[in-house]
């Protein structure tokens, strides 16, 4: 699916390109192409949506977002469109998916929520009220064992 040149670039940009003031020039030099070619390949991958984002990946815990939880919701099947879209619209919600099979046979809507500062419980309760969903579980993160970016190439 990706051309050989695209794969070469992909292998480079799936890792960390910081530490270089002109990263794309370096990329070009390493791969034997011009800086412009390298940039055009990345832009093409981005416009096709193969590269979903080109930017910094943060460690939220170090960035001042202390509360982080996976919250799973039991949503009636015929409301999942509406509720999923609504839940996704909150700023604190960074990920929102419907999953099949459901967890514990009923929790079908999964969200990752990051809270800034205090009152996370209150804020969550308000979101739940707003959604009209009272059956949800907060799966609090107790320990991180692994967090890496996938190396596809």
């Amino acid at each position: 699916m990706l051309t050989e040149r695209e794969q070469k670039v992909a292998r480079f940009i799936q890792r960390d390109i910081s530490g270089d003031k002109r990263p794309f020039k370096t990329l070009g030099t390493v791969l034997g192409m011009t800086e412009e070619d390298a940039l055009n390949i990345i832009k093409a991958l981005a416009s096709q949506g193969i590269v979903r984002k080109f930017g910094a990946v943060l460690r939220h815990t170090r960035a001042g977002l202390t509360q982080n939880a996976m919250v799973v919701w039991a949503v009636p099947e015929d409301e999942i469109d509406f509720i999923g879209t609504k839940l996704a619209s909150y700023r604190e919600v960074t990920h929102c998916y419907e999953r099949t099979p459901s967890f514990e046979e009923k929790y079908n809507l999964f969200s990752m929520i990051h809270f800034k500062g205090e009152n996370a419980d209150d804020r969550l309760r308000r979101i739940a009220d707003d959604l009209g969903i009272s059956d949800y579980i907060v799966l609090v993160t107790e320990q991180e064992f692994k967090k890496v970016s996938m190396e596809y190439f």
Binding site: I17, R52, G55, A56, V57, R62
Partner: peptide
């Protein structure tokens, strides 16, 4: 560079859409 060293930035680069791949 400082934000990278202190660990706030994990990396700068591409995030791929696994499904599209």
């Amino acid at each position: 560079m400082r934000l990278k060293e202190s660990g706030v930035i994990r990396r700068i680069g591409a995030v791929f859409d696994s499904k599209k791949l």
